[in-house]
């Protein structure tokens, strides 16, 4: 088990290093970094000063190692546009993204679990088809399209909810609903499959034989067993939500990491973009490592390979 974890850890560190090289390269391949830093209409002397102060005249490998050492100490550089340290910027934005991710996940689960249970209990019937249809729609509908529809209905026509910003909890509702519905299908499918499997088990027949009412047999005896794999999917989707909400945060101008990434692309604010890319990639690396370890703990057969 320990050897397995160490192997996985070693692999994760390698992946992280590769990601850091790519993130570092991002700042260099976009043309002349110094002239980008100096801005339009800068003189040749200004650019020369910037080259010297930023160490851009040194070999690339030295630049990379210096940058990496800084990153490891939490120094991610300074934003060109916001004129603030990137680390500080990220810390101020990540809260909104995490709130959005958790709200979306909660919405997805409150949708997916009842739909999946209904579909499994009435599998093959029209109820199953309706439930599966609702979830399939979530997968087929582009999230930006749903977002715009929701804004038109709830923000413009009904004037119930704000369309953009992140000032109050109401600002989170529309983006969370959009994202939550978008990630519902995989959860729903997993709950449905798990429930169909659980309902065919002998312990369900035992519970029925005891005279326990059907709803209790389904919701207690079967659902409890069907939810085990769902917990695994939650970790995966959480990573996806933290990294993948760029579009939604941008549409709703919700001031989170995704929106920050979007802005930094627009302003060619490369230190920020670099840091966001690095951070999101690392979130994935860590979550993958975590799920590997949890799986190995759940299933001893995995530890060998």
């Amino acid at each position: 088990m320990l050897i397995y974890i160490l192997k996985r850890l070693g692999l994760a560190v390698l992946v992280a290093l590769c990601v850091s090289v790519l993130a570092f390269a991002l700042l260099r391949v976009q043309g002349n970094a110094a002239s980008a830093l100096a801005g339009e209409g800068a003189s040749a002397e200004d650019i020369a000063i910037i080259i010297r102060t930023h160490g851009l005249d040194r070999p690339v490998v030295v630049q990379y190692l210096t940058w990496l050492a800084n990153v490891l100490q939490g120094d991610l550089g300074t934003s060109y546009f916001f004129k603030r340290p990137v680390a500080e910027l990220i810390v101020s934005k990540i809260g909104n993204t995490v709130i959005l991710a958790i709200m979306s996940l909660a919405i997805a689960l409150t949708l997916a679990v009842p739909l999946g249970v209904l579909a499994a209990v009435y599998s093959g019937s029209w109820i199953d088809r309706i439930c599966s249809g609702i979830s399939l729609l979530g997968q087929a509908l582009p999230s930006f399209f749903l977002a715009l529809c929701l804004v038109m209905l709830f923000a413009i026509h009904l004037r119930l909810l704000p369309a953009s910003g992140a000032q109050t909890w109401q600002h989170f509702i529309l983006p969370a609903v959009t994202l939550g519905y978008y990630i519902t299908p995989p959860f729903m499918r997993l709950v449905r499959a798990g429930m169909i499997d659980a309902l065919s088990n002998d312990y369900v027949r035992t519970a029925r034989a005891k005279g326990i009412p059907s709803h209790k047999v389904v919701l207690k005896h079967a659902l409890r067993n069907a939810l085990v794999p769902v917990v695994g999917l939650v970790t995966v989707q959480l990573g996806l939500l933290i990294g993948g909400s760029v579009v939604i945060e941008s549409i709703f101008a919700l001031d989170g990491l995704g929106y920050l990434a979007y802005q930094s692309i627009g302003y060619r604010d490369f230190p920020v973009l670099q840091a966001v890319v690095l951070l999101l990639s690392l979130v994935y690396v860590v979550l993958t490592l975590l799920s590997d370890v949890v799986n190995a703990w759940l299933d001893p057969r995995l530890r060998v390979s």
Binding site: N201, D202, Y203, T206, A209, R224, N225
Partner: peptide, 21 residues
Amino acid sequence: IRGNQMAMIFQEPMTALNPAF
């Protein structure tokens, strides 16, 4: 009546009990 005045036991004791409780 079922599970009250009339009870049943099954062939497979390994799977007849719920593993989660």
